[in-house]
Design a protein around this nucleic acid. Sequence first.
DNA 1: CGATTAATTGATACTTCTCAAATCCTGTGG
DNA 2: CCACAGGATTTGAGAAGTATCAATTAATCG
Lengths: 232, 232
Amino acid sequence: MDTPHNCQLCQKQPTSAFHDLSADGLNEISQLKTCVSFKKGQVIIHEGARPQGVYCIHRGKVKLYTLGTEGKEQIIRFITSGDLLGYRSILSDEPISASATALEDTHACYIPKSSFFKVIQDNPKFSLNMLKLSCHELGEAGKMITSLAQKNVKERLAEILLILNSTFGEDEEGYIDINLTREEIANMVGTATESVIRLISELRKEGLIRSKGKRIALENRSSLRQIAAVYE
Amino acid sequence: MDTPHNCQLCQKQPTSAFHDLSADGLNEISQLKTCVSFKKGQVIIHEGARPQGVYCIHRGKVKLYTLGTEGKEQIIRFITSGDLLGYRSILSDEPISASATALEDTHACYIPKSSFFKVIQDNPKFSLNMLKLSCHELGEAGKMITSLAQKNVKERLAEILLILNSTFGEDEEGYIDINLTREEIANMVGTATESVIRLISELRKEGLIRSKGKRIALENRSSLRQIAAVYE
DNA sequence: CGATTAATTGATACTTCTCAAATCCTGTGG
DNA sequence: CCACAGGATTTGAGAAGTATCAATTAATCG
């Protein structure tokens, strides 16, 4: 068991389901949770299993992915500080539909299934936040579907780079603050690793990004947006 | 205004959010709703708008789609008897992310936004059902993402045909009971109309399906499942 | 520092899209 | 009821986009 995490930190995240929750509600959660951590590369939940609880990521980064044909990963989205993990399966009462693996050492709070339901029942506000959250994710998934179905690989890559940048921010040198292999980027974009590599090099030659090793920095967002055709 | 619909019909649908709702809850909804109908081809909600209420489809079939590059439709899913329409946007408090058009004459109940929230607040059971529903949809969306990213067009087509068959059932001649153009099928599969036509003809030659005009019947599901690589 | 994994590049094959032309339906007005 | 206009479907040919395989170089970790 790790040092307990302060729930107020998660509450501060405006996208968190705990945002704007009453002190009582927060206390209730604080008492029901336990703290866990995961090493880089460790699988947190995996497809097909029956989940026993929900994780709230305190610090770290996690990829959520399904396994497609021949075990190939399709990354659905990333999960980071203040985000919940595993709630979909519990709330829909279905087996877990996506695996999650820590991309770096990750600390999280674990809320057992029964406690999670209790919090939902005791706090209409939280319940509504969860509804809002899942509906928001549903909208994001719809965008991803349209993107995969209609855009070519270069457009999708530009889109993903913009998303990664806004999700994870930048380090002191301006590089996107996430450590992904080219293969993982390909698994988000939905293409072959080599294609991603070629297109990254193309974007670099065009001066829209720069890269050092596996790290990437955006140099010209507006052109990237134009390529991604993100009208929003 | 149309003849009022009987909410008990929708309540019977096992996938409906009204399923298993108390008589009181059902009465509350019955009193807040109004009834509307849409002609074939009529747009019910459209992308970018701010929704003022939720529709519960009583009878008819509706396609839900986003508009991608150059206005091309990407069909996300279909909505039919007992299903809700427009709740995502209302619950996430975002503009509507997908348009909906009636595929045939459709009758629905309309529940204004404020009433919908009232029902949610008054009926924890309903609120939980909505959570369950949106989380289920989230899982389906994830499957669709993986499918689009990793399967080829023929595999996706086989998958869609199986989904259409189980969603809409069959008419007396065994054809899938939904009237879609080849273009609409292409807009689900995420490909060009011509590609869908070629592959439908290929599946016909292989004896896996038969077709009459635009109607399609499945002849060999297990082979279709194998092509679709649906391991579930 | 060696061993392993990841990234890159090139060549080639395959899938899918696009454009064009022909045929088939379907609903409508005479 | 029939002919016709306009849209939908079908087929073909060629172009473009991606994937795959193989070989090389670079980076990383114990």
